[in-house]
């Protein structure tokens, strides 16, 4: 709707949109602000918004109480590992379905997506037993595998929709030019699909980072990521707003920063490649 509008109209749009934007963002902003307050200021009545004594004390306390770096490292390994492993398995599968479609391709895609609807709790205990049996309980590798499996359908689906946009003739040209299947995927398909692959990678990294069922139920001390780190603050003794806020900020900051820097790919990724 590229059309000249009056500045008044534009100002009105701006005002409404900013008001709504800030309203939606407010809980996050409030959390970040509170993390710099003292506990007393955090629950002061009436609440203080900006004019308080800024302090980093809460961060120090949180760091001391729970080893943030280890949770962070676990989160990075688990989210990153599951995403990369998922991509390695999904790229060939998506290639198959996008470029050599058969009558069953759509059924397979929908079936894959439907596995995501299997309620996790329904199979929690069996997985728990299997994990004990295989020695995977509270290990990062175990979670990498589980999160890869739960996100695999989405990775395949997204890559499939991106690959579909690449004309098959280009891959055929590569074949005529003497490229083997490996060359075709490595030198032609993958570089062409970089934007799509980046979006897929980012979105699934975030989904894995935020996953809070398996990470809470399959980890204890060793492999616990940030979801578990923050969950430990839900117990009543942890209820100090400033510290809770500091811990929350620390848990979400990496993703927020990453999200803001890669907004374009993310927006594309968030639409799951399904809407143009």
């Amino acid at each position: 709707m590229a059309r000249a509008v009056t500045n008044n109209r534009k100002a009105l749009n701006t005002a409404i949109a900013w008001a709504i934007g800030l309203l939606i963002f407010f809980p996050i902003l409030w959390t970040i602000l509170t993390s710099f307050k003292t506990e007393a200021q955090a629950i002061s009545d009436p609440p203080v918004f900006l004019f308080f004594d800024w302090t980093l004390e809460n961060y120090a306390v949180v760091q001391e109480r729970s080893n943030y770096a280890r949770f962070l490292w676990n989160s990075i390994i688990i989210a990153g590992g599951s995403t990369i492993l998922g991509l390695i398995i999904a790229v060939p599968a998506a290639w198959s379905m996008a470029f050599v479609p058969s009558k069953r391709t759509k059924d397979i895609l929908l079936w894959m997506l439907s596995t995501k609807m299997l309620p996790a709790v329904g199979v929690l205990y069996p997985i728990y037993l299997l994990f004990i049996e295989l020695g995977l309980l509270d290990t990062r590798i175990g979670l990498v595998v589980v999160l890869m499996l739960i996100n695999l359908p989405i990775i395949v689906w997204m890559l499939y929709t991106y690959f579909k946009e690449i004309p098959g003739e280009i891959l055929e040209a590569a074949r005529m030019d003497g490229a083997s299947l490996k060359d075709e995927i490595l030198y032609v398909l993958t570089p062409m699909a970089v934007p799509g692959i980046a979006s897929t990678l980012l979105l699934n990294f975030i989904l894995a980072w935020n996953e809070a069922f398996w990470t809470l139920n399959l980890t204890a001390a060793q492999a616990a990521p940030l979801t578990a780190f923050i969950a430990s603050y839900s117990s009543p003794e942890g209820l100090f707003y400033a510290k809770l806020s500091a811990a929350s900020t620390m848990a979400i900051a990496p993703i927020l920063i990453m999200g803001w820097f890669s907004q374009k790919q993310l927006v594309r990724g968030l639409t799951f490649g399904a809407v143009k």
């Binding site: 004309p167 003739e169 280009i170 055929e172 040209a173 590569a174 074949r175 005529m176 030019d177 003497g178 490229a179 083997s180 030198y187 032609v188 570089p191 062409m192 970089v194």
Partner: peptide, 27 residues
């Protein structure tokens, strides 16, 4: 196809969009 010793020019040209002209021809 890769082993038949034939070259093909496609209707859509099917150039590799991420490569320079030089790299396309070199492929």
């Amino acid at each position: 196809p890769a082993k038949r010793g034939l070259a093909m020019v496609f209707q859509s040209y099917a150039l590799y969009p991420h490569m320079s002209v030089r790299k396309n021809i070199a492929f």
